[in-house]
């Protein structure tokens, strides 16, 4: 079992350890596979499908698929870029993403992904769905308009905080993040120091009174595309 695993991503040889997912192996090799629901501290669930890669001709979610010896993986292809772009576009039109006044703008992973893919406007009609804002908690705001159903908060609350503040409820277009069933955030034991308040990739879970602290131009994705940190590990 100690024999290491050899696979290729876009023709580049990559060495992986047993138990690693394709995404973990790629990250270590400095190859960025775009992702939204995946978070390094959380159990992967393969929900957003942005990390879809072609493994030996079949589409697989890189965040959950274990790396195996001899895999031939495609990541950076026009077809996969289009597939990922379509998902990002759908996320934009299925929510109400008003970047111009969002506290998360510049540090938002959904927005950064759209920047990385060079999206200037979604190709689908905007839905403008009716979504709620829960500002009941003294320190945390929950804006469902911006939620992309990555379920990072659900996993962080259970796996890292030992709580059960968030759950996914409903199906399809009506799926949403529930707070302890159908309660308000103030009725739960959620605290501002919880990891579940940190992991939101978009501006859905926002800590109050700290918005807009970083100047435009110095925010996370103002100058460098998302994934640049991983790509900096690449061996020549």
């Amino acid at each position: 079992m100690n024999k290491s695993i050899h696979l290729t991503i876009d023709g580049k040889p990559v060495e992986a350890k047993h138990g690693q997912t394709i995404m973990q192996a790629a990250d270590a090799a400095g190859i960025y596979i775009p992702r939204l629901c995946s978070h390094p501290d959380l159990r992967p669930i393969g929900s957003c499908r942005v990390c879809t890669v072609i493994v030996d001709g079949r589409p697989q979610a890189a965040c959950v698929k274990p790396a195996m010896d001899g895999m031939v993986i495609e990541n950076d292809t026009p077809e996969l870029l289009q597939h990922r772009r379509n998902i990002i576009d759908m996320m934009f039109v299925e929510g109400n993403h008003f970047c111009m006044f969002c506290e998360k703008s510049g540090n938002c992973e959904l927005q950064a992904m759209a920047y990385r893919f060079g999206i200037t406007a979604p190709q689908y009609p905007f839905q403008f769905p009716e979504k709620a804002v829960d500002a009941s908690h003294p320190d945390i705001m929950l804006d469902h308009n911006r939620c992309i159903m990555c379920a990072r908060c659900v996993r962080a609350s259970q796996e890292l905080d030992g709580k059960n503040v968030f759950q996914a409820i409903g199906r399809g277009f009506h799926r949403k993040i529930g707070v302890d069933g159908e309660k308000a955030l103030a009725d739960t034991d959620m605290a501002v120091g919880d990891r579940s308040a940190d992991v939101c990739p978009v501006g859905c879970i926002i800590k109050k009174r700290i918005g807009f602290r970083t100047a435009i131009g110095r925010r996370l994705y103002d100058r460098q595309p998302i994934g640049s940190d991983i790509e900096a590990n690449a061996t020549p």
Binding site: F126, F128, K131
Partner: peptide, 18 residues
Amino acid sequence: ISVGDCATMGGIPALRNN
């Protein structure tokens, strides 16, 4: 050319859309 977020996605006026 659609210039700006309002032309591109409705922008602030589109807050009335739901």
